[in-house]
Design a protein around this nucleic acid. Structure first.
Lengths: 204, 204
DNA sequence: GTCTATAGGATGATAGAC
DNA sequence: GTCTATCATCCTATAGAC
């Protein structure tokens, strides 16, 4: 009876270790990718940062590509889900844009390194991962665009070129990850309020 | 007399060729860097795109690093000069911000690839080039920040956190280069007007 | 699960013929 | 100024001992 139990416990620990070890690698690699970019970081760099040898990494991941893919797909899904939640709501375009700004800030707080990879290294994805991420990005932008167009049509947004509005807001939100040190001192809720105010009402 | 003349002419052509050849390399490389990033582009890639062999590149440039440095320093100086011109003017903070938005659009039109390198590959610069570019970037941001603070103090800008305003505008302007295809169809002056309107007056 | 050793190929750069 | 040949080093990834 004890034997059976300890067998299961050991198996559970093994699975747990293996999975957290992979997560450790992904976490360490994401920091390096953010600093120097995917292509400039070698498996030796990642291994060194974990106090191990490059060959040992391959017991936990299939290769460098899997690290990038895990990193990017994870946060891309996060954004897709958040956008779908907003789209499903029955509220005004302005309210939806506020929600988008808020979830971008929330996701950036926990996924800064993933966002760096999504923004700067998506083109180094391969095969179906590349197609999937590009598709998610296109759908995301299309949803955002439709909200803006609706807002203009209803006369609740100023009639500027929709692409200019989309691009202005989105490029600010997408590069929020670069701003984490300065943000660190700022309360997230204050940041959200200021960001909504600046992006919606302008600065004048 | 003819001999002397043709000697000078040949020398001039030689200097001209050498310099335009270097410019050609820088131009071709900048396109590749923009697509895949500095680290993912090899000297063989650059050579192939010019229908020559990698070794031949070294007759015109000292190495890969010189290409990056040329590319980045050039556009960094462009931004620094433009900002200094604006700072020297005696006009309101709002007027200065409008000018900044406008010269960002102008520079982006001619230097899209350089800006990509400045944004994404500056960390691969070495030695004094790295220090110089980082310094120019810090000074640039500090100038922008002082304009914003003055605008808030004078009560002409809404009293949002200055860093939020700085970051929102700057991140939009810095990623304009990503937007060149869509912009291509739009008149530059209309883009400037829309951009100024969206960034200053907001969208609501 | 980590190590050493190494395969197999790419990389930045140089030497020297033409 | 471009080429071929090559160097020395780095890269991702695998094989196999422990």
């Amino acid at each position: 009876m004890y034997d059976g139990l300890s067998g299961w416990v050991l198996f559970f620990i093994f699975v747990l270790m293996k999975s957290t070890r992979k997560e450790e690698i992904v976490a360490v690699a994401s920091g390096l990718f953010k600093e120097k970019g995917y292509s400039a970081v070698s498996m030796r760099d990642i291994a060194q940062a974990m106090n191990m040898k490059a060959a040992s990494l391959y017991n936990h991941i299939s290769g460098k590509q899997e690290i990038l893919s895990t990193l990017i797909v994870r946060v891309a899904i996060e954004f897709t889900n958040a956008m779908e939640t907003v789209m499903a709501e029955e509220s005004s375009p302005i309210n939806k844009i506020e929600k988008i700004i808020e979830f971008h800030i929330d996701i950036t707080v926990t996924y800064a390194e993933n966002i760096a990879a999504l923004n700067n290294d998506w083109m180094h994805l391969e095969g179906t991962d590349l197609k999937r991420v590009v598709k998610m990005r296109e759908d995301y932008e299309e949803n955002f665009r439709s909200i803006i167009k609706q807002g203009i049509n209803e006369g609740r947004l100023r009639p500027n070129h929709p692409e200019v509005i989309l691009f202005s807001i989105l490029s600010t939100l997408r590069t929020l990850y670069l701003w984490n040190e300065k943000r660190g001192k700022m309360d997230v809720n204050i940041l959200k309020k200021d960001m909504v105010s600046v992006l919606l009402k302008g600065i004048v």
